[in-house]
Amino acid sequence: MTVLELRAVHRVHGAGQTAVHALRGVTLTVGAGELVAVMGPSGSGKSTLLSLAGGLDRPTEGDVVVDGTVLGGCSRRGLAALRRRRIGYVFQDLNLLSSLTAAENVALPLELDGMRVRRARRLAQEALCEVDLDGYGPRFPDEMSGGQQQRVAIARALVGQRRLVLADEPTGALDSQTGEAVLRLLRSKVDGGAAGVLVTHEARHAAWADRVVFLRDGLIVDTSGPLDQPEELLTTPGGAG
């Protein structure tokens, strides 16, 4: 089932001679249970693509479709509601509100959407359990490690009915082990039925995706998907080989 679709999307910033073509006709589909990584150097259009996918920006041309809804056809209010209900974000920093506890951070999008506080908090606790942070609900972000904060952000991104997670360099400030744990978790959440887009310039992080899309100057220049039978490469003691 397709969760996110970009149809021949263009985004031009400014006009005339100083116009910057951030995206020049990008078409991309992400299904449920699929993690797609977008790789490219600075200025290739990665962040623009993510902003458009999340309804934070509008394309100059083309359509962005989330869960069957064309974002261009939504009112501001409708778009805000769709973002709260369907789309979760994980960023490198500024992920969590420092004055709220972990549970309050996770419950926030649900409460903003009109859910009763008690129910929202219960769902938030469940979401925290799913990312192995049982008991961390009452802690404030500055009482948690960077890796734990990113786990809270992932819990918040996928709380309630949200099925699309958009991640922008989510392991940027973390050491390699903690970063890998965050990617492992993101991978598991996607395997559980969410759709994910991971923007990164690190190949090692992109390698967690099902497909890697290479962006250059606002265009997809190549795509890499894994082999169907990776077992052929190695004999795994984990039981695959």
Binding site: M39, A203, R204, A206, A207, W208, A209, D210, V212, S224, G225, P226, L227, P230, E231, L233, L234, T236, G238, A240
Partner: peptide, 10 residues
């Protein structure tokens, strides 16, 4: 990158 995806999947 494709090879890296395969190793990571394993």
């Amino acid at each position: 990158v494709r090879t890296m995806q395969e190793y990571t999947r394993l």
